[in-house]
Amino acid sequence: MDSHEDHPDCRPFGKKKHILLQRPPMTFFHGIDSANMIGFLAGALTTVSFLPQIVKVLKTRDTRSLSVSMYGLFTLGVFLWLVYGWIVHSPPVIFYNALTFLLSAALLAAKIRWH
C-alpha cells in the first residue's frame, strides 16, 4: 500500500519544489538574473524616494506633517522585509530594505526627537 504522502499533491510543505524554481532564470549582466535586476531597480527607485523627505526634515527640522504611527509601522514592516530577504537569500530585498530601514528609522527618530 502506497503512503498518502507519496502522492505529489500530498507531500509535506518542505518537499515541494516551487514552480518558478523549476526553470533556470534568464541571465544577463554577467550572471545576474532578470528577476534580481528588476528587484534592484525597484529597490533603488523606492529607496531613493525617501531622500527628498530626509533632506527636507534635516534642513527644516519640521516633522509636524510626519505621522509617528505610520513611520513606526512602516519601519517595522521594512525590518520584517529585511528578515524575509535574509531568509530567502534575496540580495535586492536585503540590500534595499536595509537602506530603507535606516532611512525610515532616521525619519522616525527625527519625528520623536524634534516633535
Rank of each mutant, 00 (worst) to 15 (best):
V83P: 01
L76P: 00
Y96R: 02
L107R: 04
A42R: 06
D2W: 04
M37D: 00
S49L: 10
H30R: 14
V68K: 11
T60S: 15
H30D: 12
T63D: 00
P91K: 10
H7Y: 10
D62R: 06
V78R: 01
T47G: 01
S65W: 06
A35R: 12
I38E: 03
L99G: 04
V57E: 03
W81M: 12
Q22D: 11
A35S: 13
S3H: 14
A35C: 06
S90M: 06
F79N: 01
V55R: 13
H115I: 04
M1D: 08
L73Q: 02
H18L: 14
F13D: 11
S65F: 07
P91C: 08
M1L: 11
F50Q: 07
N97D: 08
S67P: 03
P24K: 14
V88I: 15
F101N: 02
R23N: 12
P24R: 12
L20C: 10
V78A: 03
L99P: 03
H115M: 11
L21I: 00
S34H: 09
N36T: 07
L76T: 09
W86S: 12
P52M: 06
G39S: 07
I87A: 07
K111L: 08
T60H: 06
R113I: 13
G14Q: 04
A105Q: 05
F74H: 03
M37I: 15
Y84C: 05
H4I: 14
H115P: 00
C10Y: 14
L51Y: 05
L80Y: 05
T75W: 00
G43K: 01
D6N: 15
K56M: 09
T27S: 13
G39F: 05
R11K: 15
P12A: 08
L45R: 02
